[in-house]
């Protein structure tokens, strides 16, 4: 039916669309920045403030990396906030017991991965819907955090873990010639570098590895993936464990930021995480969603919060704005995909 001379929809077209899929969230980000640039006090459009926003992105951003895999596979994870809290408490308890920074951080990541393993195990073994399972662990992991923390904040030495979220990190560990030549705008909180590195690794996982392809295949058409010999259950389990570990890492950094393990922290963060992924172009029906998109989404939300704070916009306005942006992003996406299907 198509005219003969139509160009082949090949690699170029696929790449062009990947770019097009990110244009929306990126435009949204520019609009938000421009808006506050005009409205907010001068401090908003400064290098220092950009660094602040980047640091404020880290917790949601790290968790959104894992959530991108889950949403791309057609699942959902509501337990992210609780997993972050549990990981922060576990890290604090370990630091308090004198285990040192690295082992404590690893334990925190493992605590998050354990929540993910429970999620993945229940979803694949009992064939329960992810929404229900993670709604359960949303409560259970929060409860476990309170139990471990004896229902209060866990004070602990934070050691170099607090450097992760510091906007003026201690550079004394770096070789002298770097320390002296590094431009000021590159001195970001190490957590931001960690998030960037994680995002790059995750994007590679998603696009270049068998695991990433299977993740997409499951979200795109699960029966077909199974028919083609994809180990659907094993892959799903791995996805939830990975996402749990990313939430755990976010929890370790949350401990670094607060310098206490707080069982009540990150309440409701799961919705910010899902919002970041969805604003970044993912569909909750699976098969879509990119790491870069999720990062833009997380950054957009942090920018919004920061801009509102600086210009003295009350918190409730901010909440309404975030809600509107989520619905708007999904609507735009729906219109675009509707056109594509026609």
């Amino acid at each position: 039916m198509e005219p003969e001379d139509q160009p082949l929809p090949g690699r170029g077209a696929a790449r062009a669309r990947q770019v097009a899929d990110l244009v929306g969230p990126f435009l949204g980000l520019i609009v938000v920045v421009a808006l506050f640039g005009a409205v907010a006090p001068e401090g908003f459009l400064s290098v220092f403030n950009a660094k602040t926003i980047a640091t404020q992105t880290v917790i949601v951003g790290l968790a959104a990396i894992g959530a991108t895999f889950i949403i791309r596979s057609g699942g959902i994870d509501l337990s992210v906030g609780s997993a972050i809290a549990l990981a922060s408490v576990v890290t604090a308890l370990s630091m308090k017991a004198g285990h040192g920074e690295l082992p404590s951080a690893l334990l925190g990541v493992l605590a998050g991965a354990a929540v993910g393993a429970v999620n993945g195990g229940l979803i694949t073994l009992l064939k329960l819907p992810p929404f229900i399972v993670t709604l359960g662990t949303l409560g259970a992991a929060r409860g476990a955090a309170k139990w471990l923390g004896d229902e209060q904040k866990v004070d602990a030495p934070s050691g170099w873990l607090k450097q992760f979220m510091s906007k003026n990190p201690d550079l004394s560990g770096l070789p002298g010639f770097i320390r002296e030549n590094v431009p000021d705008w590159l001195v970001l909180a190490p957590g931001v570098w960690l998030m960037g590195l994680s995002a790059l690794t995750a994007a590679f996982l998603l696009r270049r590895t068998v695991f990433g392809t299977w993740t997409t295949a499951i979200g795109s058409n699960e029966p077909t993936a199974r028919l083609c010999g994809v180990p659907v259950e094993r892959t799903k389990f791995a996805i939830y464990v990975f996402a749990g570990a990313m939430a755990g890492l976010a929890g370790v950094l949350q401990f670094g930021r607060l310098t206490v393990g707080d069982p009540t922290t990150a309440m409701g963060k799961e919705l910010d995480v899902i919002a970041a992924v969805v604003i970044g172009g993912a569909s909750l029906s699976g098969g879509t969603g990119t790491i870069l998109g999720a990062m833009i989404g997380a950054f957009l939300m942090a920018t919004l919060a920061n801009g509102c704070n600086l210009s003295g916009v009350p918190n409730f306005v901010q909440e309404i704005l975030v809600g509107g942006i989520i619905v708007g992003a999904v609507t735009l996406d729906g219109i675009r995909h509707g056109r594509r299907a026609a």
Binding site: T213, T216, A217, G219, S220, N221, T224, L227, C228, T288
Partner: peptide, 8 residues
């Protein structure tokens, strides 16, 4: 048809 539309 048994294909994953989101994959190449």
């Amino acid at each position: 048809l048994n294909l994953c539309p989101h994959l190449s």
